[in-house]
Design a binder for these strands. Structure first.
Lengths: 225, 225
DNA sequence: TTTAAATAATAGTATTACTACCTTAAATAA
DNA sequence: TTATTTAAGGTAGTAATACTATTATTTAAA
């Protein structure tokens, strides 16, 4: 049995569904590779078209502009990660164990094991670290938010917030702590690799150290005397 | 007595020192206003030139490109904030009180009281919240780092890290906790105002709540049983 | 078989991000 | 004083980017 996990995306994110055709899947696959390689600023639809072997106008039939494509990729990532978290914490009763598992999944780059789709999750994880915040750090954030573009991120945050409340029902800031964990899992990784003196992991550059830091940070708060 | 605080900037950030001429000061003042108004993505040297009443080429004689200008503004902000912190925590003996003061200064928008310079600190604070991370979230981050562009940010982080160690000499992650406080002071503010369901302050939208959250987060860690 | 609908390629335009060159004004030397 | 250098800013470009409108081709339905 080989099943394909298909993530249902917000239709306002695209003009034509990229998961519905070969060209569309190529756009997703190649854009992940190019953004990973040259960064979002230098990434253009022309370069993407040349890489795929189609024309610029061809890409524009799928995505209005490169910002929408980035929002699509990040939304896809958060949806996929929420699924991973639900899958890997399924049947775990102890909320502490569950929350530890969540931190692991946030901070570790999961293998691109199953050929889920046209998207390489390992590269996408790196893109989210370096470019993810650019999806919402814009002047259109409220307009985009009204169109529910960030729903997957908010759902993930709510899920983690609820696990936090299971651990400590009286904790006052479950959602802020959840968004802090998510952001810091990524920012500490970026800092560790690029601006190491902003972290305490500059020597080893080990993901496992970020996990220890986040565990320490979170559980000191939830189980304080 | 009226003294002018002049911040000495890294010379590699500019082609001609913007603090040395009227046009230069206008570039700083107007770029802060325009970026605040329309966002960094839509900001162009042409719009800036029109606003000032000069030409595009005139701006290019001061800054190589708009990325360098953003890095300049963020570096200026971190230097200015480090000065504010040193000034306002001067003579405070108790490190806990000191750290609380730091969190206040990070999360609160200080008034543009003294006419320090051509820069409106209140607007710049908002710019740092929404655009600050774009200064380092690029492919050139390592090259920029080698040129010491992020030294003011690293210095601030080291300063806060040391106060953390004064509070709790055995704490293992002073630098990572420092960068977490800095980033979260800004991100929680952005989320509160633009994506409120990622925080617990969506109702009131009060800076003071962010301060409470950060205090809770930090001191649970430093003084845990 | 004809017609319509979907898909894709061609060839543009406006804006952006620069660059090379030119003019003017101030500063200094003869 | 006048000639000459130098600094500062302006004019007028170009190449690349971000799209768009139009035309062509394929596919599918009537």
């Amino acid at each position: 049995m080989k099943l394909q996990l298909q993530i249902k995306m917000n239709e306002a994110l695209y003009l034509r569904d990229p998961q519905s055709s070969d060209l569309g899947k190529n756009i997703l696959r190649h854009s992940v590779q190019i953004i990973y390689k040259i960064g979002f600023e230098s990434f253009t639809f022309k370069k993407l078209a040349e890489d795929i072997g189609t024309t610029e106008a061809g890409i524009y039939r799928y995505f209005e502009n490169k910002h929408k494509l980035l929002v699509y990729l990040t939304a896809w990532y958060w949806s996929w990660l929420e699924f991973q978290i639900r899958f890997h914490t399924n049947n775990i009763k102890d909320p502490t164990v569950k929350l530890k598992r969540v931190i692991d999944l946030l901070a570790k780059a999961l293998e691109d094991d199953e050929q889920t789709s046209s998207i390489n999750e390992k590269l996408l994880h790196q893109i989210i670290i370096a470019e993810g915040s650019k999806a919402y750090l814009t002047k259109q954030v409220s307009k985009d938010n009204k169109q529910q573009f960030f729903k997957p991120y908010k759902d993930l945050c709510a899920l983690i917030g609820n696990i936090i409340l299971e651990c400590s029902p009286n904790y006052k800031y479950p959602k802020s702590l959840a968004s802090t964990i998510i952001e810091m899992a990524h920012f500490q990784n970026f800092f560790m690799n690029n601006l190491p003196s902003l972290t305490d992991f500059g020597q080893t550059k080990e993901e496992s150290e970020i996990i220890l830091f986040l565990n320490d940070l979170v559980f000191a708060n939830l189980y304080k005397s």
